[in-house]
Every structure is written in structure tokens, then in C-alpha cells.
């Protein structure tokens, strides 16, 4: 028989909800960030920081590399080894850095235009090499920094400043492209599904080899305004929530129900030799001769 005091104990011990403390990861004085009200990039960044925290990798061993665009401003806000480079070229810089310092955990933050248009060539070749790095594509289907031009992921029919009568170009599917090019971990998340996103980013970072996470998020200022979404909330609900289906749910749906929806979750995973390790083996073999 327990005493009343013992009965109360478990309740008192119950863990209080504590919000995640971002301050060790965010550079002092750098916030507010430049992203517009309602832009999903901030939500993605928070998921990324929580995922990084879970990996327990030292901040000194994390390098964040980016190109040009809204998403590419991420490194400026975080307290890692950070490199903000040229439009489309983040992966090339990241490749050089990773080969020079293989102990670094390299994360590339890039956008749909940066990764898939101007940087498309580097994107496929990075996937092919399978260097151990994580590529986060903040995919908002538009060029935000230059105020709203069509990107390789702007859906057909949608309006942009360079697609005033509706975009007629077919889109790239970031994940299919990455998988076809040889990436060994391919996933998709959305800013709306923040828990899922944190989890796939964590898995992506723990994966050995090139991991690609296509993150669907919203650009209310341009994409939203041009395409008659009234609020950031509406964008998140219509595009991220209703426009996607998790891999688990998808199994239970008919093909016609999946029509036009993007899959969320880990879409592909394989085991292939990692480039730095292969290079290291080559060095050892050559030196032994």
C-alpha cells in the first residue's frame, strides 16, 4: 500500500513541456531574418535545427553551404561553419569543402531555382557521386528573391511574373530527379508537417551518402499573391496539407486519389559506396604500391 505522498510523486515528476531552445544554434543579433511574413523557410530552418540537435553533432563539425536565393540566406543565421556562395553553385563548393575536410557534416540549403535550374548540373552530379552530405531543397515553386519568376517546380498553369498567362513548362520532380541521378536517400516533407519534416531531415543527416530532402513550403508574397491564395495559412493547407500524401497513406489510396498529389516521407533509400570513403580507399591503395 502506498502512502499518499508517493501517490503524488509521479505527478510532480511529470515532465513540464519545454519549448525547444534555438538560441545555441542561432547567431546572436542576426534575427529577424529577411524572409517575408508567412514564408515557410523559417519553419523549415527550425525543423532543421531541431533535427541537428538530435544528431548531437558538434557545431564545429557542421558546415552549411548555400547558393543564392531566399533559402540560401539560411547559413547567415546559424552558428556553424557557414558558406554563402554563388547562384546554383552551392554543391560544387560543398563538394570541395567536404573532400578537403571529410569530418565535416555538410548540409546544403538551396531552393528550387538554385538547385534545379541554374544548379541542375551540379545537383545531378552531386547525387551521382554520393558524397556524404545532406541537400535540403526549400521548394516554394517560385523565385522569391527576384520577386516571383517561374522556376522548374512552378506547376503548369500557375502564374508568375514570367508566366503571366500561366506557366506552360512541365515541372521537375526533385525526388525522382535525385533518385535517378543516384542519391542514396530521397525524402520529401512540408513545412506544414513539421514533425515529419524534422524526422526526415534527421534521417537524412544520419544517412551515409548524398541525401536529398525536397521541402514543400510557401511563398505567400509572390506565389501566393499571384495565384489567389489569400493567406499563408491557406497556402499551407491547400498546397502542403491537401497537396501531399504520406507514403503510408498512399498505400491505401487508389491511383485516381493520388492524382496530382506529392508523396511525403522517405521515398527511396539505398546503400552505395560513399565518395569520400572510396577516395580514401584509393589513396591507401595507391600509397601502398
Amino acid at each position: 500500500m502506498s502512502t499518499p505522498a508517493e501517490d503524488v510523486k509521479p505527478l510532480a515528476k511529470k515532465k513540464k513541456k519545454v519549448p525547444f531552445n534555438y538560441s545555441p544554434y542561432v547567431r546572436g543579433g542576426k534575427l529577424p531574418h529577411i524572409w517575408c511574413p508567412g514564408c515557410g523557410h523559417g519553419i523549415v530552418l527550425k525543423c532543421l535545427l531541431r533535427a541537428l540537435h538530435t544528431t548531437e553533432i558538434s557545431k564545429d563539425d557542421i558546415a552549411m553551404v548555400s547558393g543564392i536565393g531566399c533559402s540560401s540566406r539560411t547559413p547567415g543565421y546559424v552558428d556553424f561553419n557557414t558558406l554563402h556562395t554563388l547562384h546554383g553553385r552551392a554543391l560544387a563548393y560543398a563538394t570541395g569543402l567536404k573532400m578537403a575536410k571529410p569530418k565535416l557534416k555538410v548540409i546544403v540549403t538551396t531552393g528550387d531555382g538554385d538547385a534545379l535550374a541554374i544548379g541542375g548540373n551540379h545537383f545531378i552530379h552531386a547525387c551521382r557521386r554520393n558524397l556524404d552530405m545532406t541537400i535540403l531543397v526549400y521548394n516554394n515553386s517560385i523565385y522569391g528573391m527576384t520577386s516571383g519568376q517561374s522556376s522548374p517546380t512552378t506547376p503548369q498553369g500557375k502564374i508568375s511574373t514570367t508566366g503571366r498567362y500561366g506557366n506552360i513548362e512541365p515541372t521537375f520532380d526533385t525526388c525522382s530527379l535525385a533518385q535517378a541521378a543516384g542519391a542514396t536517400f530521397v525524402a520529401r516533407g512540408t513545412a506544414y508537417h513539421f514533425q515529419e519534416l524534422e524526422k526526415v531531415i534527421f534521417e537524412a543527416m544520419m544517412h551515409k551518402g548524398t541525401s536529398v530532402v525536397d521541402v514543400i513550403d510557401a511563398c505567400p508574397t509572390y506565389y501566393g499573391r499571384f495565384n489567389k491564395y489569400k493567406t499563408p495559412t491557406e497556402m499551407m493547407e491547400k498546397i502542403e496539407k491537401e497537396g501531399t500524401v504520406s507514403v503510408k497513406q498512399a498505400d491505401k489510396l487508389l491511383p485516381e486519389e493520388l492524382q496530382g498529389k506529392l508523396l511525403r516521407g522517405v521515398l527511396y533509400k539505398s546503400d552505395r559506396p560513399e565518395y569520400c570513403e572510396e577516395y580514401n580507399k584509393l589513396v591507401i591503395a595507391v600509397q601502398a604500391k
Partner: peptide, 20 residues
């Protein structure tokens, strides 16, 4: 109810919920 949805969907690091 302390669900922290506001924090998790805030893009601006502007809101956090602490349990007293």
C-alpha cells in the same frame, strides 16, 4: 493547452510556450 503548434508553425522564432 500547451500543444506548441504556434511555436512549431511560427517561421520567425517569435513565439514560445513554457509550462509553469
Amino acid at each position: 493547452n500547451g500543444c506548441q503548434l504556434c511555436d512549431n508553425r511560427c517561421p520567425d522564432f517569435a513565439i514560445q510556450v513554457f509550462e509553469e
